[in-house]
């Protein structure tokens, strides 16, 4: 796999005409063939960043290249490689599915290829609807049409801006399958989502953006390893009124009317402190009937990052 980034964003800033500063000095590199998830709360700048890379919004300053081509000075070569599925369901209501994907392919300068479009529509379960008017389709079907339009010109890079927002669980899983198939065929995917589960399941790397700035970019597994916390939960045989002074040195929390003790520890530490805790509990004659451990999810990490960022 090439180590040259397929998307390179350098010192990118955007201030809208209204004076709103949406992006501030963004630096970001996306590797070829990866699924990169961009996470951030509403208004963080995710859509502005994607819109600039795709040519929809003018940057105020900075540079962006796609496949090594500058998006401004070499826009044809840059945009030819990019497919975009925007957040909003934007379709021409009176067109048929076939006509709208044919239009998209033509717009990107690609010669007519009915066989390719047929295969793609079949992959997206749209072939039966190819002659249907877009306004007669369900929301999920329309979302698939948006993906079909983005894929109609065989892009190397696909931007999915909240692709599964508002779709049911079954369709969401189908879309994940489509994304995996695309990645397997060599397409680089940049995904923004509010569903942390989606990023956790799909992404190779995670970028977190907040208030127009990139807070961090990290391998997903590494991110969870670095920032993840584990929690040991002890279900006590007898409830406690308070944590005894002899256990004060441990990071304990008494919850659920004194029947449960939470012990949080760092997975990066050389020692977890669990052995010492259990010994101290025995000395204090505190017995438990069950215990479990839980690793912090990407969602927990994301919330922490945004809150502290």
């Amino acid at each position: 796999m090439s180590t040259e980034p397929i998307i390179a964003v350098s010192r990118l800033s955007k201030t809208y005409d209204t004076g709103f500063k949406a992006l501030s000095n963004i630096n970001l590199e996306v590797r070829p063939g990866e699924i990169f998830a961009l996470l951030g709360p509403n208004g963080a700048g995710k859509t502005t960043l994607i819109s600039i890379i795709c040519g929809i919004v003018n940057p105020s300053s900075g540079t962006v290249t796609a496949g090594g081509h500058d998006i401004i000075t070499d826009f044809r070569a840059a945009r030819s490689q990019i497919g975009l599925v925007p957040q909003e369901l934007a379709i021409t209501p009176f067109e048929s599915v076939w006509n709208t994907v044919s239009f998209s392919r033509g717009l990107f300068g690609k010669p007519r290829d009915d066989a390719y479009l047929e295969t793609m529509l079949k992959q997206l379960s749209l072939w039966d609807k190819k002659d249907s008017n877009l306004m007669t389709l369900s929301g999920g079907m329309k979302r698939r049409v948006m993906i079909a339009k983005a894929l109609s010109h065989e892009p190397r890079i696909l931007f999915l801006d909240e692709p599964t927002a508002g779709v049911d669980v079954e369709l969401r899983r189908e879309m994940w399958d489509v994304v995996r198939t695309l990645q397997a065929s060599g397409v680089t995917i940049i995904l923004t989502t509010h569903y942390i589960e989606e990023a956790e399941l799909m992404a190779d790397r995670i970028g977190v953006i907040n208030k127009g700035a990139i807070i961090l970019v990290e391998e997903k597994a590494e991110l969870i390893r670095k920032l993840g916390r584990k929690q040991l939960t002890l279900h006590l045989q007898k409830p406690l009124d308070a944590i005894p002074p002899s256990l004060a040195k441990h990071r304990l929390e008494l919850v659920e009317d004194g029947t449960v003790l939470h012990y949080t520890y760092d997975t990066q530490g050389e020692r977890t402190g669990i052995t010492a805790l259990l010994a101290d509990l025995g000395d204090a004659d505190i017995r438990f009937r069950d215990l479990e451990t839980k690793e912090s999810s990407l969602e927990d990490i994301f919330v922490d990052l945004v809150r502290n960022g």
């Binding site: 369901l89 934007a90 379709i91």
Partner: peptide, 18 residues
């Protein structure tokens, strides 16, 4: 105006079209 109204103008702006 219609592509602006329904939102499909994004496609025109993101395509390799001068």
């Amino acid at each position: 105006y219609f592509p602006k109204f329904v939102g499909t103008v994004y496609e025109l702006l993101s395509a390799p079209v001068s």
